[in-house]
Design a binder for these strands. Structure first.
Length: 961
RNA sequence: GCGGCCGUGGCGAAAUGGUAUACGCGAGGGCCUUAGAAGCCCUUGGGCGAGAGUCCGUGAGGGUUCGAAUCCCUCCGGCCGCACCA
């Protein structure tokens, strides 16, 4: 406290000041901890409590848990935590059993990079960071059930992450039942012959019992929901690890670190999330999520309906299978394009160019093989950025081969081109240049025929040589599309699609199908700081899962945990796992049920998303050593119920940046666990809410470098730092931009309650807005005036009276109760605070002592938002139990309406008069009063009346003749 | 390029078909004070007017309606997502 303030303290020793705030906040935080105020009872088990509380309707209110970053918190971080806390407190006061807690997502790259920078073990630095963050969060007065908190790095937690991995590993997706089933049931089907064993590479089929263990493992690998494969993966030399598609940006760089990412064939673990593509889309319908996030997930999964069509090629009965969404335009397919790396390319390339091959097609190369090799090298040399920049210009080369268009027998040339992506569909397309802009551009570049099969509706005519672009509108009719057996001519697109699809199926040349953009989830990383895979390999290289009794498989203590990174631009590198450096840990003798044998451990670790895929479940039953979660407890908190048929967390708050990463992975794991009968909800999060970001002004000097925002001065709309003018822009808050404001400094200046109120009052929770330290004082003043309405600043005595409040005050009170209740329920915290402020201002202006009944209800209204002041004033008002579990006030409808309301009288929509009328006035009566009003009569000036619109009691609008 | 969201006082914002600017910041004035970066009170969208008043006003233009910040169309500006997805 500065010296100048001490004079004020002498004059008003019991005023609400920062010192008072600090005192009561520390006191109540200790009280809450000591009394377990925020502990939510489970219906059974070690966290069971008051059965009466457990019998209440439940609310599970959750935040996206934080990384324990070394940088500490700035005021932007706790925005969501404060919001869920306010909401949770309101729910507690309205008769709910509220589960609200917070853990830490502590594995992963950031924690590891920080540890490497500081030269400490990741566990040590992570745990130190968690201690700091917990202290910062505790000082905000967040009401968490601390018994349920954990970190994903706790062996007791990741034991179950590993257990779930094994559940997924030991499952397959039954396409008929549309659900995951234990792999043992698949083995039984193979053994009994109920299901045929798939043919091997040579095309021969053998009985299950005739296969070696390694062969069986290979067959099962094609079914398991977690499997190792040699597919091309995203290899990031700069980070020294492979990455999931979701972690690679659109321009082919790592989301973290912004290093180049290369496609490389490496044996890696994958999760068969594609098996759930349909369900992941369909189940979005039942979720209460922002439309924007649902849309992002739908786009990411990318479901499109179309057909697979086989185009015969070569002499050995091969066919190029394409995926198309426009099978109706098959008659217009005049060439084909394969992705450069398509496996059929080498097989179909002839020794020499066919007679008379166009020079444009050969690219000037002597042979097809040379042309293909050169083009492949060219395509591979292009980064994704370049490839996309060149998107308008279509490149490719003729393979020398022709395929047969199955609907008209035409021989169509087969090209390779990098505008066809190996990772989508079948990696091959039929090109319909008349209908597709990309095919059109390619056809023009290579002088390929363009057949019009959809009649243009824009007057351009059917002579494609005059066209500037493709035409493929859905509302047009097919033409030139008939053979001896089928005609699509005259049909609309939709009917034509249906007809040709049926015909192709009957002919055995194609079938209707659904294609997804979603790829399987690459699940292994070359990192130390992650969950080890509970997998060992025998001498034949066959993967075995560890039995549950060997979990958790703990991370070994190693000397060197840093990742092996490379020159970020050097694609000719391959990953090295830190765990492989520890031979003693890697090579082990284990008894997996058939006697002690030598095994080699898997040395990859899981991605940092693993721990966050299921943490909501562990909050429910965090100490259970027998099970992931007790079924009865899981059912209680997560189970489907009326109005929430999918079940799940009642409210999940976090940033929109997790739209397709965490939220998709977590949904996937939930569905697997649901299918296997471990949990009762197939969706983890029923309601999702994305909070906005707290932004901050960034001030840059003439060189563009950020200067410390706290030291910038404003004069007449200009900004100066050390006398020099600086430019202001809006950006993120953070240390690097020198504009971070910490909750600690705001708490020291005003207290946590003020910080909470300010963050909630800034604006709607889902909108981003700039932080303004100067404006924080407004919420401090609210608390000060509230305090003054209850406590005498000179004596500290409670000043409330037992006299009945006057009518105007009662109406102000009940309107506030009504509005605040609705606003809190709807998470409109900013307007809730405005209504509390209005009520408090009314009491201040009324003068004299406030009635006890009004003061108490005002305290209850603000308690969820400012819990320390709430507790303190509640106690001062004579209550001995915590305000946390007090009942939220209920509005009396009789006082929610005003005694008299102002009715506006408009003429042609312009306000001409205001009348004080009863809220219950009838339309007829109001019209009579309005028309008799002298101002209205004067404004009408004798004009006749055409029409009168009456909306009693607020409005009358007169339309003169 | 495609899709989505959003433009309201000096600033954060309220009002989602019915009195535009609630609530807060800032600013101006006053009280208190030796002093005020504390606290309290008043004023605060713009124009005209001494005043009562009156006209204009929600990015721009148009439309629907008795009535539009709100619904529709076109344009301008900003933010976000996806991006050769067949």
């Amino acid at each position: 406290m500065s010296e100048t303030n001490s004079a004020a303290e002498v004059a008003a020793p019991h005023r609400y000041t920062a010192a008072v705030a600090a005192d009561i906040e520390a006191r109540w935080q200790d009280f809450w901890d000591a009394n377990g105020t925020y502990e939510a009872p489970n219906p059974s088990g070690d966290l069971a409590g008051d059965p009466a509380v457990a019998a209440r309707p439940k609310k599970f209110i959750m935040d996206m848990f934080p990384y324990p970053s070394g940088a500490g918190l700035h005021v932007g971080h706790p925005l969501g935590y404060i919001a869920t806390d306010v909401f949770a407190r309101f729910q507690r006061m309205t008769g709910h059993n509220v589960l609200h807690t917070l853990g830490f997502d502590a594995f992963g790259l950031p924690a590891e990079q920080y540890a490497v920078q500081t030269g400490t073990h990741p566990r040590a630095s992570t745990e130190a960071n968690m201690v700091n963050m917990k202290a910062q969060l505790r000082s905000l007065g967040l009401g968490h059930d601390k018994r349920r908190s954990f970190a994903t790095i706790d062996p007791d937690y990741y034991k179950w992450t590993q257990w779930i991995f094994l559940q997924i590993f030991n499952s397959w997706y039954d396409e008929d039942a549309k659900k995951a089933r234990p792999i043992a049931e698949l083995v039984a089907q193979f053994e009994s012959g109920e299901r045929a064993v798939p043919a091997d590479e040579t095309g021969t089929t053998r009985a299950w019992t005739a296969l070696t263990p390694a062969e069986r493992a290979e067959v099962l690998g094609d079914y398991r929901l977690a499997y190792a494969s040699d597919a091309p993966v995203n290899w990031c030399p700069g980070l020294g690890t492979v990455l999931a598609n979701e972690e690679v940006t659109a321009d082919g760089r790592s989301e973290r670190g912004n290093f180049p990412v290369f496609k490389s064939k490496l044996r890696q673990w994958n999760m068969r999330i594609t098996a759930y593509a349909d369900r992941l889309i369909d189940d979005l319908d039942g979720l209460d999520w922002p439309d924007a996030i649902k849309l992002q997930q739908r786009n990411w999964i990318g479901r499109s309906e179309g057909a697979r069509v086989d185009f015969p090629v070569g002499t050995e009965g091969d066919a190029i299978t394409v995926f198309t969404t426009r099978q109706d335009t098959l008659f217009g397919a005049t060439y084909m394009v394969l992705a450069p790396e398509h496996e059929l390319v080498d097989k179909i390339v002839p020794a020499a160019w066919p007679e008379g091959t166009h020079e444009v097609w050969t690219g000037g190369h002597a042979s097809p093989a040379e042309a293909v090799a050169k083009y492949r090298a060219f395509a591979a040399s292009k980064s994704d950025v370049e490839r996309q920049a060149d998107a308008k210009e279509k490149t490719g080369v003729f393979t020398g081969a022709f395929a047969t268009n199955p609907v008209n027998g035409e021989q169509v040339p087969v090209f390779i081109g990098d505008y066809v992506l190996m990772g989508y569909g079948t990696g091959a397309i039929m090109a319909v240049p008349a209908g597709d802009q990309r095919d059109f551009a390619f056809a023009r570049a290579f002088e390929l025929p363009i057949h019009c099969v959809v009649e243009p509706t824009d007057g351009r005519g059917t002579d494609t040589s005059t066209w500037d672009d493709a035409f493929g509108a859905y509302d047009a009719k097919l033409i030139n599309s008939a053979n001896d057996e089928i005609s699509l001519d005259g049909l609309g697109v939709v009917e034509a699609k249906a007809k040709i699809t049926d015909w192709m199926a009957a002919q055995g040349i194609g079938e209707g199908t659904v294609n997804f953009r979603l790829r399987d989830w690459l699940f292994s990383r070359q990192r130390y700081w992650g969950e080890p895979f509970p997998i060992v390999y025998d001498e034949d290289g066959v993967a075995h899962s560890l039995p549950e009794s060997m979990l958790p498989l703990e991370l070994p203590e190693v000397e060197d945990y840093s990742p092996r990174t490379f020159d970020p631009d050097d694609a000719d590198t391959s990953p090295e796992t830190p765990l492989s450096r520890n031979e003693d840990w890697v090579n082990v003798t284990l008894d997996l049920g058939d006697g002690p044998k030598r095994y080699r451990r898997e040395t990859n670790t899981m991605p940092n998303w693993a721990g966050s895929c299921w943490y909501e479940l562990r909050y429910l039953d965090p100490h259970n050593s027998e099970k992931l979660v007790d079924p009865a407890i899981e059912q209680y908190w997560m189970g489907p119920r009326e109005g929430q048929p999918t079940g799940g967390v009642d409210l999940y708050v976090g940033g929109a940046e997790h739209a397709v990463l965490h939220l998709l992975y977590a949904r996937f794991w939930s569905k697997v666990l649901f299918d296997l009968g471990h949990i009762s909800s197939a969706e983890p999060f029923h309601k999702l809410y994305n909070q906005g970001m707290i932004q901050a002004y960034v001030y840059r000097d003439s060189r563009g470098f950020p200067v410390p925002a706290a030291e910038v001065e404003e004069r007449d709309g200009q900004y100066f730092f050390e006398g020099e003018p600086v430019k202001r822009e809006l950006g993120k808050m953070g240390k690097s931009l020198k504009n971070a404001v910490t909750p600690d400094e705001i708490c020291a200046e005003y207290g946590a309650d003020t910080l909470r109120l300010y963050e909630m009052a800034m604006g709607p929770l889902d909108v981003s807005r700039p932080w303004d330290t100067r404006a924080v004082v407004g919420q401090f003043r609210l608390l000060q005036r509230l305090w003054r309405n209850v406590v005498d600043e000179a004596s500290g005595a409670v000043t409330v009276t037992d006299a009945e409040p006057d009518d105007a005050t009662l109406r102000a009170l009940h309107k506030a109760i009504d509005g605040v209740s609705q606003d809190l329920e709807g998470m409109r915290f900013n307007t809730a605070i405005a209504k509390i402020t209005e009520l408090n201002n009314h009491l201040t202006k009324s003068g004299g002592a406030v009635s006890r009944s009004v003061a108490e209800r005002l305290v209850l209204l603000i308690a969820p938002l400012a819990p320390h002041v709430g507790e303190e004033l509640w106690r001062k008002l004579g209550h001995t139990s915590s305000v946390v579990h007090a009942d939220f006030p209920v509005a009396d409808p009789a006082y929610v309406v005003d005694e008299a309301v102002t009715c506006v009288v408009q003429i042609k929509g312009k306000v001409k008069a205001r009348l004080e009328v009863s809220p219950s006035i009838s339309d007829e009566e109001l019209e009579k009063v309005a028309l008799a009003d002298e101002k209205v009569v004067a404004a009408l000036d004798g004009a006749g009346i055409r029409k009168v619109i009456v909306r009693a009691p607020k409005l009358v609008n007169i339309v003169p003749a």
